[in-house]
Simulated assay, not measured.
Amino acid sequence: MNHRILVITDPTAAVAPLQLPGGIPLLVLGPQDFSPQEWETAPLVLLDDRYSRAVSARELRRRPGLILAWSDPDDASVYDRAVSLGAEEVVAPRGSEGWLTLRMHAETNCAHVDWDRLLRDGPDGVSA
């Protein structure tokens, strides 16, 4: 089973538009650089909205587990793009980190959770 999350964004950007948790294997590629097989087999696809039109132009099959991340909260047309792609969710890259981390772990069957750290630190960093 493929456990790498496909992240479609500019892999050369100095500052990643999607701040993702460590420990989960990611495959970060540009909108023309991933194969249809990578699109179909990734447990989850995170698509930077800036590249949604380029991905849409590739006419890939709809798939479950597509999340569109947008950076302009004043751009309501993001929802039209999400519907046209069949996205399950639209998230703001900033402020959705907790939800996104849980979703990524859920989609990878918690194979990459740092259980030792979680059990050692306890809730809110309080040691057990």
Rank of each mutant, 00 (worst) to 15 (best):
M1Q: 15
M1L: 14
N2S: 13
I5V: 08
I5T: 01
I5R: 05
L6W: 01
L6G: 02
V7M: 07
V7E: 00
V7L: 03
I8E: 04
T9K: 09
T9M: 14
D10R: 00
P11N: 05
P11W: 07
A13E: 12
A14R: 15
A14K: 15
A16T: 10
A16C: 14
P17H: 02
Q19A: 15
G22L: 14
G23A: 12
V28L: 03
L29M: 02
G30P: 01
G30A: 09
D33L: 08
F34K: 05
S35P: 03
P36K: 05
P36R: 02
Q37N: 10
E38T: 00
W39Q: 06
W39A: 04
E40W: 05
E40S: 14
T41K: 14
P43H: 10
P43W: 03
P43V: 01
P43F: 07
L46S: 06
L47S: 01
D49F: 04
D49I: 01
R50T: 08
Y51G: 03
Y51A: 10
A57T: 05
R58E: 12
E59A: 08
R63I: 00
P64K: 14
G65H: 03
G65R: 09
A69M: 12
W70G: 13
P73M: 02
D74Y: 15
D74H: 15
D75R: 15
A76V: 12
A76F: 10
S77W: 12
V78A: 06
V78E: 07
V78W: 02
Y79H: 09
R81H: 14
R81F: 08
R81L: 10
R81E: 00
A82W: 07
S84M: 15
L85F: 10
A87P: 04
E89A: 11
V91N: 05
P93Y: 08
G95N: 00
S96V: 03
S96K: 03
E97T: 12
G98F: 08
G98L: 11
T101G: 06
L102I: 02
H105R: 10
H105C: 02
A106L: 13
E107T: 04
T108R: 08
N109S: 11
N109P: 01
N109M: 09
C110T: 11
C110A: 15
C110S: 14
A111F: 04
V113W: 10
D114V: 00
D116L: 12
R117W: 09
L118H: 14
G125P: 04
V126P: 02
